[in-house]
């Protein structure tokens, strides 16, 4: 059930299958003698023509890097529109979105790793149990009842009791894309001031010593904290809550609605958390400007 596409190299046109498509590139399956670094054009069945370079190759699978980042949602929407109305189904979409999950043991903050109409893959601070009934509430979406189908460590597959209509999913995905601060959007806009943190590696940034009022959410609990250090990758704060190592928190900073971070170090009442996705340097600058 992979979507077909066409690869165009010079005058050669060959059918391929699209395994994955993202803003920056695609994973394709094709029987074509191609080399890394080779340029070609991918034509999707919805008509988009995308120029790219082969980034890697393994057997008949290869990764294509697009010359220009693309917006996935219009392609997804056209794909849906091309399907007959009564059988229209959304493909699975990879995303990193904070969500609350209610289980028999309580409520926890988790990260939605992908979502489809029938279910979702979530990353949880503690392993879930197979056949466990849950209610998943991705940020900005309504609560969805589901059952845990499989568990691999902290990743679990949840199938929804009732299908989520694509009419709800598409606006949610659009809102997530537009809300930012998704790093790829800021990056694509370019023209940032050239700071050392721009590479995302933070090689020399020791963090800023702050006394920044912020909030934390963990499950349904929320409280105020004083952030002492903030970098694109880490946040450090003092708090008197009993929190376990590895817990996923939602850090709410001035001008930033919330960003998931996992506790990586506890020293008395001092907690160090690592953001599950680094903050974009421009976002860090904005937070600090508002502080």
């Amino acid at each position: 059930s992979l979507q077909p596409g066409a690869l165009i190299v010079g005058s050669i046109r060959q059918l391929c299958l699209v395994r994955k498509i993202s803003a920056g590139g695609a994973v394709l399956h094709a029987d074509l003698p191609m080399e890394e670094g080779q340029r070609l054009e991918l034509e999707l069945e919805t008509g988009e023509q995308l120029d790219g370079v082969i980034a890697w190759k393994r057997g008949l699978e290869f990764g294509l890097r697009f010359e220009e980042r693309i917006d996935i949602l219009p392609i997804l929407a056209r794909n849906l529109a091309s399907q007959p109305g009564e059988r229209r189904r959304m493909p699975r979409v990879e995303i990193a979105a904070p969500a609350l999950i209610e289980t028999g043991a309580g409520t926890e903050l988790v990260t939605v790793r992908d979502i489809a109409q029938g279910g979702s893959k979530v990353e949880t601070p503690h392993p879930l149990a197979v056949d466990e009934r849950v209610v998943l509430t991705p940020e900005g979406l309504r609560p969805i009842e589901g059952v845990v189908r499989w568990v691999e460590g902290r990743i679990a597959g949840v199938s929804f009791q009732a299908e989520l209509p694509w009419q709800e999913l598409i606006p949610w995905l659009r809102a997530r894309r537009d809300a930012g601060p998704a790093p790829f959007l800021s990056e694509a806009s370019g023209g940032e001031s050239g700071s050392a943190a721009r590479t995302g590696e933070d090689p020399v940034d020791p963090g800023l010593h702050l006394n920044l009022p912020a909030r934390v959410r963990e499950g349904t609990r929320r409280w105020s904290i004083d952030v002492s250090t903030l970098t694109t990758r880490n946040v450090e704060f003092e708090c008197f809550a009993a929190l376990r190592l590895g817990t996923l928190l939602w850090i709410v900073l001035p001008g930033l609605e919330g960003w998931p971070a996992r506790i990586v170090e506890i020293d008395g009442y001092r907690f160090t958390c690592e953001f599950t996705q680094p903050l974009h340097p421009a976002v860090l600058e904005r937070v600090l400007a508002l502080a």
Partner: peptide, 13 residues
């Protein structure tokens, strides 16, 4: 099924 990804990266090997 074909997977769509909102992230900007080239899917890794």
């Amino acid at each position: 099924d074909t997977v769509y990804s909102l992230s900007g990266d080239v899917p890794p090997l």
